Simulated assay, not measured.
Amino acid sequence: MRSSPLSTDTNSSNEITDNAATDKKNLNKGSMRAVVFDDYGTPDVLRLTDRPIPQRSANEILIKVHASSVNPIDYRLRSGEMKGILPGGFPRIPGYDVAGEIIESPTKSTFDPGDRVIAFLDNKYGGALAEYAVCEPEVVARIPAGLPFEQAAAIPLAGTTALQSLRNHGNMQTGDHVLINGASGGVGAFAVQIAKAYDCHVDAVASGDNEEFCKSLGADHFYNYEDVNFEDSAERWDVVFDAAGKSGYWNSRTVLNKGGRYVSTEPDVKGMIMTVVTWPLSKSGTVMLAKPNADDLRTLIDLYEQGKLKITIDSTFPLSKAADAHRYVEQGVERGKVIVSHQE
Rank of each mutant, 00 (worst) to 15 (best):
T17S: 11
I143C: 10
T8K: 06
A145N: 14
L281D: 06
E131A: 12
R167S: 11
R298E: 15
V139P: 01
Q55V: 15
V269N: 03
Y96H: 12
K196P: 10
D220T: 04
D97A: 09
V35T: 09
G186S: 14
S320V: 07
K83P: 01
F37S: 07
T174R: 13
I311M: 09
L163F: 15
M32P: 02
T254G: 03
G41Q: 11
A145E: 12
G285T: 05
T17Q: 12
Y198P: 01
T316V: 15
M172F: 05
A133E: 02
E60K: 14
Y125F: 15
N181M: 10
G271P: 10
G80K: 06
D115V: 07
E305S: 14
A141R: 02
F190G: 03
A130W: 03
A130T: 05
R33T: 09
V178K: 02
I155K: 00
S68K: 04
R236Y: 06
R51T: 10
T10E: 15
L129C: 12
I194W: 08
T278Y: 03
V187A: 09
A191H: 00
R56F: 08
F230G: 01
P91A: 11
V45R: 07
E344I: 08
S109D: 09
S264G: 13
T8F: 13
P137T: 01
S12L: 06
S284F: 00
L256D: 02
N14R: 15
D232E: 15
N28Y: 05
